[in-house]
Simulated assay, not measured.
Amino acid sequence: MTGIRDLLGVDLPVVAAPMAGGPSTTRLATAVGTAGGFAFLAAGYRTPEAVAAEIAELRAGGHPFGVNVFVPTPVPVTEAEFRRYADRIAPEGAPYGLDLATADRVADDDHWDGKLDLLRREPVPVVSFTFGPPPAAVVRDLRRAGSRVLVTVTGPEEAAAAADLGVDGLVAQSGAAGGHLGTFTPAAPPAPRPLPDLVRQVAGRTGLPVLAAGGVGGGRDVADALAAGAVGVLVGTLLLLADESGTGRTHRDALGDPARDRTVVTRAFTGRPARALRNRFVERHDAAAPLGYPALHHLTRPLRVAAAGAGDADRLHLWAGTGWRGARAAPVADLVAELTRPL
């Protein structure tokens, strides 16, 4: 039976989840590796050149690591729907001098071909994919290059489709996870399942090794996922406040704000379902937000950048899973030790 050592090259079943947009840094990944765990770099929203530099830095450190890549599975939005939403949120940008109402409807593939060329040319120990299944030829090429390939799934049906591609393992992500849901069907995300139940369903359907992800609030959740059959557990939200993470100050402060009392799944910021702390932007616009990724991501990005710089947490995407109360400011080594103490 494939275990964590065979799949990831480490013995400790704690895995730093990829968190695109800033929190995942080489410093964080190095600290997790030094503590005995495994870390993913987040290639999302980064150029191939930037990813190559991070790979080179981590490779020099000597710890196993992985790279997570977004599969380009666009969620189309019509020009009319896009313009309606841009007009609706335009007042949010006014305090920052942003003219959101005239923003272009942008669609891109996040440098898909460039990143795959890099990973074929400079193989890393593990490559994971999210937002959908990669083409079978991509899985074949990466495995031939020497990488183990994982796909994020949110239910047993997706797991079966991913297994048919010949992947080495699966990341079973529950709906309690922070940030974007990795579902193949963003218009109809799966019903929430407790993480141990999801692990059992995915492992039972495919027989592949499974990494569990979503809603982890502490060591007890790690132990429960492992008892359900996971070989390792991804933690993301619990590392957002780590000393080595790249989480911005506005996001950090919001995670510790006792007035923020819940997380919600919203498409208001990016046009794809993602879990975040509820704030006023979500309250004002979630019900009216169309599906439309990456067009809505590009529309709201200047607003989110401005809000982060201004300390405006009510116009910022405060990605967080349901276990966010367990996050605390501390060195990664201390956080990893706490997560493994019940094992």
Rank of each mutant, 00 (worst) to 15 (best):
K115S: 06
V106P: 07
A107K: 00
D110Q: 13
T130V: 15
P133A: 15
T102W: 00
D117E: 13
P123N: 02
V126R: 03
D113V: 07
D109C: 05
F131P: 10
G132M: 09
P133M: 01
W112L: 10
V124S: 04
F131L: 12
L119S: 07
G114L: 07
V127S: 02
R121W: 00
V124I: 04
D108Y: 08
F131R: 12
V124A: 05
L119V: 09
D117R: 08
G132A: 10
K115T: 07
A101P: 13
V126F: 07
A107F: 09
D109Q: 05
D108K: 09
E122C: 02
L119F: 10
H111C: 06
A107E: 15
L118P: 03
A107S: 11
R121E: 09
L119G: 06
D113M: 00
A103M: 12
P125S: 01
G132L: 09
T102K: 03
V126G: 05
P134A: 12
T102N: 11
K115Y: 04
P123R: 01
D110C: 09
F129W: 12
W112M: 08
T102Q: 12
S128P: 00
E122S: 07
V106F: 10
A101I: 13
P125Y: 01
D113Y: 01
F131G: 09
F131W: 15
F131S: 08
K115E: 08
L118Q: 02
H111R: 10
P123I: 02
P134K: 10
R121S: 13
R105E: 15
H111K: 01
D110L: 09
V127K: 07
G132P: 11
A103I: 07
D113S: 08
D110Y: 11
L119Y: 08
D109R: 02
V126A: 05
L118Y: 03
H111V: 03
P133H: 07
F131E: 09
V126E: 03
G132C: 08
D110H: 12
L116V: 13
D104A: 15
V126Y: 04
H111A: 13
D104L: 14
K115H: 14
R120I: 04
V124G: 02
T102S: 15
K115D: 06
G114Q: 03
S128V: 00
R105Y: 11
F131T: 08
D104M: 09
P133F: 00
L118A: 03
V124R: 06
F131I: 11
G132V: 13
D117Q: 06
P133N: 15
D104Q: 15
S128E: 04
R120M: 01
G114P: 05
S128Y: 00
E122W: 05
K115P: 03
D113P: 00
L119C: 11
D109H: 02
L119Q: 05
L118C: 03
P134Y: 10
H111W: 13
F129E: 13
D113G: 00
P123A: 06
R120L: 11
V127F: 04
T130I: 14
A101H: 13
A101N: 13
P125R: 04
R121Y: 00
P125E: 03
T130L: 14
T130D: 05
S128N: 04
D110G: 12
D113N: 06
P123Y: 05
P123H: 04
A103L: 04
T130K: 03
S128W: 01
V124F: 02
T102G: 04
